[in-house]
Nucleic acid binder design. Structure first.
Length: 571
RNA sequence: CGGGAUAUAGCGCAGCCUGGUAGCGCAUCUGGUUUGGGACCAGAGGGUCCGGUGUUCGAAUCACCGUAUCCCGACCA
């Protein structure tokens, strides 16, 4: 490709609405342009990268026998009503009507459509296991699209679905997909981790997310210091402390705390250790119980884990915090003065709260707290459960080492779905006894466009993007100096360009009549991994200059050797 | 959905407070001089000042109502 024929839309300054580095650089490098909130046009340079990521994914999935299909982005509401998700999915599902008033949605995912296809096409257990994938545009009407392509409303996703006669077969394919995902992200050149994840509302047995480690990530990942254990903080178990509850040393006292509305106020005003305080959160109870509200207690310095909380049998799912009025009606005191002592509603305490002694909490009387509370002596210990987020330094759930926490960008997610969709849509095959059997399913996603942004988050410097070899829009750029003025240089540049093209190398030829500084700055901004500079000075000696995008200095290479040199670099 | 901010040329911004001919830098086009790290000189083109309503002799500027975008939060007491 000649730069003179390429829409090279680089910018010196980044648009003011870009926040994270990948967003800024994608705009500055002329990879994407925003059309509206969460909607982006991929310009030629960006699309080349996107296509390279797609192709790596395609190759690896084809290798394990997954078959590519392409389903419509527009899906009829009937299928979604059949699965129950038309009502469940909420406002993230973009719904629309056609001219006849028939309802459709723009697909945020394709479990319904693939299951419909498979129930119509697969008849026998002999056709299983089978897996299908597509690389296609999804639409999710995000509450808050942000970080450019990272969380956009329309985005490119690879979604795969597998179908099985039983769980054993599902497990095999799941493991195969797990290692295929590792190969894909290895080939792309990302620093990533597979992490255990919550199976969420869909249910199912196992789930792993693939996270690219980056500070701009929106998820917290817990890692063990001494093992491979890694889990999304939503899922990571906060193990029960091994120690016994210390004996009570203090009497319980009712203290006036008129100006302490938060745990931090209390700690500051009364010089308490935050580890000796308890906060009380009031949520709606499960409607099937006789209660309306439930209190959840975590240590003052801990955070409630909503995913864990909503799994408690007595708690409403999804989790819903009580309003101030509801709290006041039920307890007689407002937020800021709540606690377990003489509490009129059921209570669940975190494991770490259960081993506290001499602790402080609200008195359920406005402006008052109890200090020196002790379980069993002052009140009975209620239900104990793991309801908090793990924190840095917690013991690893696998018993090896302690946890540290890093930010991650979720680029892939694999899931053992089970029979949720196949049952709802009655997707059956005949088993070896001729009996109709509901298929077991797995699903596997990769955010293709998000992979591109993540790669930039991990690979950039103050000059711009530094593409991993495998997904660079071009592998090599030729930058001739003053080509338009030199009769000897031009034919050499043209020949080198053709030789590299003939070697199946993605080569970009900067044939613009621009000054050296502009060429260098542009090519560094768009992140081409290898650069060859042609200049009269060194050509007189039969030399060209080579510089890798991460190199500090030029290397001189004989003109006759440069094609082989580049081939060696790329292999 | 709640809070905050912003909206002026393709991009980055000034002008608004104190109403009176819409500006600067980058980018673009023309000519010239330059040419190994984002050149210089001269000239040119490009505007629904987000939209609407109001106040006023006169509104980018003041008031009100919308819209869009970005950030933070979304119940963690």
């Amino acid at each position: 490709m000649r730069v003179s024929k390429l829409l090279l839309a680089t910018l010196k300054e980044s648009p003011s609405d870009a926040e994270v580095i990948s967003h800024k650089l994608m705009l500055r490098a002329g990879m994407v342009r925003k059309l509206a909130s969460g909607l982006y046009t991929w310009l030629p340079l960006g699309l080349r990268v996107l296509r390279k990521v797609e192709n790596i994914i395609r190759e690896e999935l084809n290798r394990v026998g997954s078959q590519e299909v392409l389903m419509p982005a527009t899906q009829p509401s009937e299928l979604w009503k059949e699965s129950g998700r038309w009502e469940q999915y909420g406002p993230e599902l973009l719904r629309m009507k056609d001219r006849h008033g028939r309802e459709f949605c723009f697909g945020p995912t394709h479990e319904e459509v693939i299951t419909d296809m498979v129930r119509n096409e697969l008849r026998s257990y002999k056709q299983l296991p089978a897996s299908f994938y597509q690389i296609q545009t999804k639409f999710r009407d995000e509450i808050r699209p942000r970080f450019g392509i990272m969380r956009s409303r329309e985005f490119l996703m690879k979604d795969a679905y597998s179908f099985h006669i039983d769980e054993v077969s599902l497990n095999e394919t799941y493991e195969e997909m797990h290692s295929t995902y590792c190969k894909i992200f290895d080939r792309i050149g990302l620093d990533y981790r597979p992490v255990q994840a919550d199976t969420g509302s869909i249910g199912g047995n196992a789930s792993h997310e693939f996270h690219v480690l980056a500070d701009s990530g929106e998820d917290d990942i817990a890692f063990s210091s001494n093992s491979d254990y890694a889990a999304n903080i939503e899922f990571a178990e906060a193990v029960a402390p091994a120690i016994e509850r210390p004996a009570a040393k203090k009497e319980m006292e009712l203290i006036d705390t008129p100006n302490a509305k938060t745990i931090n106020d209390l700690v500051e005003q009364f010089k308490l250790n935050i580890e000796d305080t308890v906060k009380t959160l009031i949520v709606h109870a499960n409607e099937e119980t006789e209660n309306t509200l439930v209190a959840l207690l975590v240590r003052g310095d801990h955070e409630l884990n909503e995913i864990k909380a909503e799994k408690l049998t007595g708690v409403a799912s999804p989790l819903c915090f009580a309003t101030d009025e509801e709290i006041r009606d039920a307890i007689g005191a407002g937020p800021g003065s709540l606690g377990p002592v003489k509490l009129s509603i059921p209570c669940v305490v975190d494991r770490s709260v259960a081993i506290m002694s001499d602790f402080s909490a609200g008195a359920n009387i406005d402006g008052k707290h109890y200090f020196g509370i002790n379980w069993e002596r002052d009140l009975t210990l209620p239900e104990v459960a793991d309801i908090r987020n793990v924190v840095e330094g917690d013991p690893s759930p696998d018993g090896k080492g302690t946890l540290s926490i890093k930010r991650g960008i979720e680029v892939g997610h694999i899931f053992q779905l089970g029979k949720k969709y196949s049952e709802a849509l009655k997707a059956t095959v005949l088993d070896d006894k001729g009996k109709a059997t509901v298929m077991t399913m797995g699903c596997y996603g990769i955010g293709v466009s998000r992979v591109v942004a993540s790669a930039i988050e991990q690979n950039h410097d103050d000059k711009g993007i530094i593409w991993p070899e495998s997904i660079a829009p071009f592998q090599v750029v030729i930058t001739p100096m003053n080509m338009h003025k030199s009769d000897t240089l031009k034919p050499i540049a043209e020949k080198l360009y053709n030789d590299l093209k003939d070697s199946d190398i993605d080569v970009l030829f900067d044939d613009r009549k621009e000054r050296a500084g502009i060429m260098f700055a542009d090519m560094e901004l768009i992140g081409i991994p290898h650069r060859i500079v042609l200049g009269d000075r060194s050509l007189e000696k039969g030399l060209v200059e080579y510089k890798g995008r991460r190199d500090a200095d030029n290397t001189e290479i004989a003109l006759d050797d440069i094609v082989q040199f580049i081939k060696d670099k790329l292999s």
